[in-house]
Design a protein around this nucleic acid. Sequence first.
DNA 1: CAACCTGATGGGAACGCTCCCACCTTCGAG
DNA 2: CTCGAAGGTGGGAGCGTTCCCATCAGGTTG
Lengths: 338, 338
Amino acid sequence: MGATRRPTIKTVAARAGVGRTTVSRVLNGSTLVSDEARAAVQTAIAELGYVPSSVARSLVTSRTDSIALVIPESESRLGSEPYFSAVIRGVSNGLAGTQIQLLLTLVRDQREMDQLTRFLTARRVDGVLLVSVHRDDPLPGLLEKLGLPTVLAGRRSPAEPLHHVHSDNIGGARDAVRHLIERGRGEIATITGPPDMDVADSRLRGWRKALGEAGREAGGELVAPADFTEEGGRLAMRELLERRPGLDAVFAASDVMAAGALAELRRRGRRVPDDVAVVGFDDSIVARHTDPPLTTVRQPVEEIGRSITDLLLREIGEPGGARRHLLLPTSLVVRDST
Amino acid sequence: MGATRRPTIKTVAARAGVGRTTVSRVLNGSTLVSDEARAAVQTAIAELGYVPSSVARSLVTSRTDSIALVIPESESRLGSEPYFSAVIRGVSNGLAGTQIQLLLTLVRDQREMDQLTRFLTARRVDGVLLVSVHRDDPLPGLLEKLGLPTVLAGRRSPAEPLHHVHSDNIGGARDAVRHLIERGRGEIATITGPPDMDVADSRLRGWRKALGEAGREAGGELVAPADFTEEGGRLAMRELLERRPGLDAVFAASDVMAAGALAELRRRGRRVPDDVAVVGFDDSIVARHTDPPLTTVRQPVEEIGRSITDLLLREIGEPGGARRHLLLPTSLVVRDST
DNA sequence: CAACCTGATGGGAACGCTCCCACCTTCGAG
DNA sequence: CTCGAAGGTGGGAGCGTTCCCATCAGGTTG
């Protein structure tokens, strides 16, 4: 097998009868090349099947033409949460048409975190997308220190200083609760996510806001914390039923938790929506298939993925601009659980 | 901001009072370094916060320390199919503990395919994982020609020459149908996937096999093709009901299609499982939430992801070995739809 | 005591590209 | 007719590594 090595820019230059620099100029779309030279180079490239070495290019330009999507999540999440798939799809959409590659990094433990730190310090990517950030996540700080362009999906707090895109969690939750009030529900409880995440906090605030505006009770007895998992939702529902046997509605901060709540309600013999109405959040695939199908707040997850990518590309293009952020609207999807 | 540039191997060498080569040796764990030199180098590295440039290293070693996971799928799939999330999780697991990075490449149209071709030709990854391959997919051929280590999740045909890992689709389908027979069902139809995919074909063959072994009818009238989508499953179900109003069981080649079938059955007023029993395939998240919860064939998707990664790493380590392949067992999960 | 190995070390070259700069045309302005 | 600007071009240097070789000290062998 005379497996001749891959052609380099030199090979192309020789074949086209020009210098290396001219080939490079053609490759990078410089205008300072005569038409003949350009044609000769392009022919040579085609004939040789030449593909430039992005590694060599990276070494001198110190750009990598790749970005990382970091998903810092305990193992249990990515499986059950269709959220991440949708974000990935959106990111991939945002990248279509560019030459930029997507690196996926799941961070599950400290070792992987250390590895990621080294990786980012080595600047092996041009920018970073961060998903599902917790309030005290060390990563955003590190990225800021490194001066690596970063965009968050979601925010750590309402005062998030970094570029970010998030959906209107407060408004969406408020809509959900208003809907329950309109349906004539009296005692409206809520199942929340981890308190160190702004999504969870915002949805809780939306719940409170709607109840407050309607002059309803929004006390701590009606709030049960969970962790965005189905099992967590089930346990939270049980807790709520024990504390407030008379409740007739629940707003769960995610569809998956709502599914857990439905299971627990069924087990206890409560009918949905007759005895208890349930609303979820996300409009993920599970919402359409629960029994009964779930009324939920749709958030445009794929669009979030797309938007964080857009913002990141812009930030990589011209760094140091003003803080860019985006708030995307949610919408209520009414099904049979309310 | 006196943002001094990143230290290089030269900086480290100077600080440690040794030559570049010695630093390189320490970095790569060579034994031909005195203890003192090694200590000096390690101190210098720590003090400078030095991180080697993987780009420079790649240029000379022509390894990239990254692999690509290619998901060649029309946009509609990745969202609804929790399959891919599980594979990704498995791959990420398989990569944990290595320094290898995961590149995710979604291929949706010809343009993205061309781009991927250039990318692979440029050898920007050390190996490729291919998921959801169709019979006439051009990618495996390209990869073989490039001599790029490749492992498939699934196979193109029973005679797949490339390294691959797949689950026992035939056996799983047969178990599902046997289960229906044991439950006393008489007319057992099936909803299949795209005919140009081996998964679909194998599951169909399992269905046929079980019926054949039991001396039952397995004619074409009982087979409705779909495309692994919910809507496709619904339409296939409708077709089956029109052709064979008397059928009392359906084996769908995926949970998502089974969910579509359930919807159609409900719309037509057929009770599940009383009038018609339904079995799915995958045991994805939707199976637990359908109404009624779905009896299905569990396949170890995450383990598939893990295994293809293991095989790929081994192939990258010592290329040109014998064809490596792996068949993973499935198991029947009985719920309320049968 | 000469010849030889063996462990430890460092410098030069190479990987394939981009960028800087010097050069050579050609052409219009003064 | 001379000069300078502007378009087009190519060679050298450098990016940060690894690898090949040459070197050198110290010990072992005959």
